[in-house]
């Protein structure tokens, strides 16, 4: 990611809109004038955001400010809630994600999701990854087993579970479960990883492991990380968007944003945040 892009993008929202048109090749996801309603209540207001390719983009903000909702529009999980209505566009590879014609199944396979708490699927440890592979159309057993090992190694879980791949995923610790879920998300070979406060249920050591993996994965993937933990944002962010009551109030490089906040809201968040 070039410094120039980020410099420009970090200015006002109106500016970032122009930059989007200039530099859309540099960003993998581009949110344009996104509004979202839950029934009559508007939860996202006029969101403009360019998510750079590779690296970690952090959506920072207090609980209930719409971070998770924004994240879920990226893989259209908003579809399953009938009272959600959206306006605007989210461009991914030049295509509007929110367009009804978009093939939502293949879209979701380009966005690996890691949720707040690990949600292992019923079945064994291997089954969890196997299911992702099956959905990807990989039915050859040898190939499946090869990939199961590959992705478990990628999240540094292989050594811990290689002797009990057939035991239930519920037998893992919660930190291990979260890494299993990460491996499962990677097995669909996504371009983007959407992480929704992935460490909020974990102990500090497991959290640290996930964070380290994110650092590594950010070389290959574009990661969108939702968090309300300021220190985590500072540790991981390559780009930050600060959200408050459904709006992106400030966005930019972490250095600038954290050192030199423009709005009072962010100043306050930075002073009391932890």
């Amino acid at each position: 990611m070039s410094t120039k892009t980020v410099d420009l993008a970090s200015k006002t929202q109106i500016d970032s809109r122009k930059i989007m048109t200039k530099n859309s090749s540099k960003s993998i996801l581009s949110v344009q004038s996104l509004n979202l309603w839950h029934g009559k209540q508007q939860t996202l207001k006029n969101i403009h955001l360019n998510i750079p390719e590779k690296g970690i983009t952090v959506l920072l903000g207090p609980s209930g400010c719409g971070k998770t909702t924004l994240l879920k529009t990226f893989n259209r999980l908003t579809d399953i809630y009938p009272d959600i209505r959206t306006e605007g566009a989210v461009l991914f590879k030049g295509q509007d994600i929110l367009n009804k014609k978009t093939d939502v199944y293949s879209l979701r396979q380009q966005m690996g999701l890691l949720s707040q708490r690990p949600h292992p699927l019923p079945g064994s440890i291997a089954d969890n990854i196997r299911y992702a592979l099956k959905l990807k159309g990989i039915s050859n057993k040898t190939e499946q087993n090869h990939r199961i090992e590959f992705f478990l190694q990628k999240v540094a879980l292989w050594e811990e579970v290689k002797d009990r791949l057939k035991s239930s995923s519920g037998s893992l610790s919660i930190g291990q479960q979260q890494r299993l879920c990460l491996a499962r998300g990677l097995a669909i070979e996504p371009k983007v990883i959407l992480a929704d406060e992935p460490t909020s249920a974990l102990d500090p050591i497991s959290s640290r492991k996930i964070e380290e993996q994110f650092k590594e994965l950010s070389q290959e993937y574009s990661i969108v990380l939702v968090t309300h933990i300021l220190r985590q944002a500072k540790r991981l962010a390559d780009y930050v968007a600060f959200m408050y009551f459904g709006e992106i109030i400030e966005q930019g490089l972490p250095g600038e944003l954290f050192e030199n906040p423009q709005t009072d809201t962010l100043k306050e968040y930075l002073s009391v945040g932890h």
């Binding site: 893989n75 399953i80 199944y105 979701r108 690996g112 699927l121 019923p122 959905l135 998300g185």
Partner: peptide
């Protein structure tokens, strides 16, 4: 069945029916 489990299955690219067939039924067996 929690909406999170549903989201998990769908986020892997499963259709709603595949989620029911492969995930919910298995979990509720």
């Amino acid at each position: 069945v929690t909406s999170e489990l549903k989201e998990t299955a769908l986020s892997l690219g499963a259709s709603h029916w595949q989620a029911i067939k492969d995930v919910f039924l298995k979990k509720l067996k």
